[in-house]
Each structure stands twice: as structure tokens, then as C-alpha cells.
Design a protein around this nucleic acid. Sequence first.
DNA 1: ACCCAGGCGGGCG
DNA 2: CGCCCGCATGGG
Length: 297
Amino acid sequence: MSPYKLTPSGVETRLFDLRHTLESAQPLTFFADYHERKETLSYVAGKRIIDTRFSGTVARGRFTIKGGGIAAKKRDIVRRFRLADDMEKIYSRIQTDKFMADAVRNYRGMRLTINDPWETTLCYIVSQYNNVKKIRGTVLKIINRFGTEISEGGRSARSFPTSEELLAATEKDFRECGAGFRAKYLKSAADFCTNNMNLYKLQDRGYDEIKESLMEIDGVGDKVADCIALLGYGKLEAFPIDVWVKRTLERVYFKGRDKKIKYLHKFAEHRWGNDMGYAQQYLFWQGRQMEKKDVRL
DNA sequence: ACCCAGGCGGGCG
DNA sequence: CGCCCGCATGGG
């Protein structure tokens, strides 16, 4: 049974939870407009508005696309939500212990997303030494200030500004959007990604090469590059280790002992192999939610 | 008031 | 190399 199926008006999904996916702090989740009650989802992809209805269950759901350009929109949905991934197989491989089994049970159907490389780069430059709520606020302000107004099928929205469109933004502008000390990184990244590096030409490159290229951008280090490789290029070999992932790994697998990032990386690679990216997402979210609810591991 | 947040670059030993 | 420090800013 194929993980997804294209229908004339949309896409049928299997083992997919839209709410968990959109709540899990990935780039798309910063600007997608989802109403679970009304079963509507709309988001901007490039200069188009993807306006859909989503209904059904985790076991079997259905996107119904409104407006024109249905074929392209179907393709965007399949790629963006990684609907071709065989989640049962991935789950069977990342459920190596009770913690991971709990994570999978609690967030069953949560997907990684694949986002525009530039949008992902900007989001994760903003993310450094920051918190999810403020990251979202800053990104939204940048979109509102520098995105271009687009409308389609009676609906209007602002597109995510390209690096070229952001050449007009000053460091002061980024500060006013709440970027703080990251403003200078955003400014130079917009310039660098417009004039010196084409992020879209890295698409077919391997994980190592993509990461190495990304780290040429000022303000992009090991962790941010891993986030972009994973969520901007779909490289499942990436395993970004932020404070939550580090703390969770240490608590669950090392009795709370402090471990080096490099060591934890090797641990993850050995334990979850080529599904590391998914393991990271479930571990990140489970660890973060548990701590926020003050549940002991 | 104090602490923390999906880290990074720079400086020092 | 590895380690340590400062960093803007808002929310708990």
C-alpha cells in the first residue's frame, strides 16, 4: 500500500497528523494558517497560496485543493509533508527503547517538513540562542514588512521575502523585527545568498557538501546548518542538537551526565542510522513537551 | 529580580 | 584544536 495517493482533487494521506506536524516548531509552522475545527489549511509556497481542506484521521486523511494549479499544489503537499515516507518502517527503526516508543505513540503521524532553503536558512539564523515563540514573532514581522502581497482565488497573503527582496532591508530593520544581535547575520546572509551562493543549486548535493556550503554563511554554524540540511533539503542524516535534544539525550541515555555534542552525534548515528532526522524530531518534541509539563523522565 | 531560549563567532591557551 | 565568553530580547 503506497503511503499516499493522488486523487483528481487532492492527496490522500496515510499515517499523517497535520496538527502534530504544525505544532512541532518547523519553519512552515511559523506561517501556516490552520484551523482544525474548520478543517482548513492555507500557506504560501513561493508566490502561490496553497488553499486546502484537510479532513480524515491519522490512519487515513485527505487534502482537497481549492483554486487552480492543482497538479503543482499536489506536488508541493507531497514533498512538503514528506508523504512518500514509509512511516511504519521508520517507526520500527527509531523505536529503540521506551522513551522513543512513547514519543512515537504520543506524536504518531507527526512529519518532518521540507521547506524552501532560503526560508529555512533565515528561520534558523533567527533561532540561535532564542526561543520558539520569539522566533516565530520575528519571522512573521520580517514577512509582513518585506514580503510581497499576493492574492489568489479571493484569498490574499504575504509571500516570504526572497534573499534578493531582503537586500532592501537594513540591519536596523531586522532589529526592529526583533532579531537582536542576529540582525547583522540576516543582513549578510541576504547579501551572500543573493550574490555569492545559490541555495537552490545545492538541492541534489549530498548531506556533507550541503552542510559545508551552508556553513560559509556568517551566522550559520554546525547546528543551524544541520537544521537547514534536514528541513530545507530533506537530508535525514542530519541530527541537529540543540539544548533540548542535548539535555534529553543526556537524561535518557546517560543518567544526566554531561556529554559533548560530537559524542552525542556519534551516539545518534550509531543508534538510529539513516533515520536520525526523524529520531531527532520525535526526541526533540517529546523531551521539550515533557519538560514543559514538568514530567520526570 | 533572575533565568532561559532549536548557538555563533572570536579570542585565548 | 578545545574551551569560554558575550550577545539582544521577551517571556516565565
